Amino acid sequence: MLSGGSRAVTQPLADENWPEFDIAWSHRQREGVVTMDFKLELVAVPVSDVDKAKAFYVERAGFNADHDHVVSDEIRFVQLTPPGSACSIAIGTGISRMRPGSVEGLQVVVSDIEAAREELAGRGVEVSEVQDFPWGRFVYFSDPDGNSWAVQQIPPRP
């Protein structure tokens, strides 16, 4: 038993009865025990004007518009994904109690910070100059409500 009463799955990955990869139940092996992957794939970002925020993220930040559904008079769900990312953001109405503009520390990673900055600035995003740190090179921007983003280029590993 694992802490919290959970049980580890002990079926080996090589068993032909188990699929090699299943997106809903992907597993990894650690210390001879198969464990469940927990993938972060959606983060709610609170906004005051859904249409304005959607336009910013799609037209300026270059995100893909995956979904835009009006579920009811109280709920609208919009899912947006940065290019190449496995994690999306959700904006809308009735999906979060957070105050618009209150999210800080969202971060995406790119292979070329100069090109990323140029692309964002070219699309009309107010983006900072490149800042260099031992843990990477960064630029920063915010959406119209003030939710803040960092864009990082990870330094080469020794």
Rank of each mutant, 00 (worst) to 15 (best):
G146Q: 09
R30M: 07
T10C: 09
W135L: 08
W149I: 03
P12V: 13
D51Y: 08
S142A: 15
E41N: 10
A61K: 07
E74G: 00
P82I: 02
G122Q: 12
L106P: 02
V34M: 06
R99F: 05
A55H: 11
A55M: 11
S111W: 08
A90P: 09
K54W: 02
W149N: 01
Q29R: 12
T93E: 05
A86C: 04
V50I: 06
S148A: 13
F133S: 07
Y140N: 08
Y140H: 12
P83A: 03
T81Q: 02
G92C: 04
F63L: 04
R7S: 06
L120V: 13
V71G: 04
D143R: 01
L106C: 10
N147D: 05
E129F: 07
S102I: 13
F56E: 01
Q79T: 15
P158H: 10
F56V: 02
A44S: 14
R157Y: 07
V33M: 06
P46E: 02
T93I: 07
P83M: 02
R137V: 05
R60L: 12
P134A: 07
P82V: 03
E41R: 10
D145P: 12
N64I: 15
S96P: 10
E16I: 14
H69Y: 15
K52A: 08
Q107C: 14
T93Y: 03
R117S: 04
F141L: 12
S148V: 10
V50A: 02
V45A: 00
P19Q: 11
S26L: 09
E31A: 07
P46N: 03
D49E: 15
S111F: 09
W18K: 09
P158Q: 11
R117Y: 09
R28S: 06
Q152P: 03
M1W: 05
K52P: 00
A55D: 15
G32V: 09
Q107D: 02
G105W: 10
R7N: 06
Q107I: 13
E20L: 13
L2E: 14
E119I: 09
V43T: 15
N64D: 15
F38L: 15
E118F: 09
F38M: 12
L106Y: 04
V108E: 01
D143A: 05
M36P: 01
V139L: 01
E114Y: 05
V50H: 06
D15E: 14
G92L: 03
R157C: 01
H27P: 00
Q79F: 07
R30G: 00
S26F: 11
D51A: 11
F133Y: 15
R30T: 12
V9C: 12
V50S: 02
F138C: 00
V110M: 01
G124H: 13
P100Q: 04
S6A: 14
R76I: 08
F21K: 07
Q153P: 03
G84Q: 07
D66V: 15
F133D: 08
D49Y: 08
R157E: 10
M1E: 08
S148M: 11
P83Q: 04
Q152G: 00
I95C: 04
P100D: 01
E41S: 08
K52N: 07
Q152W: 05
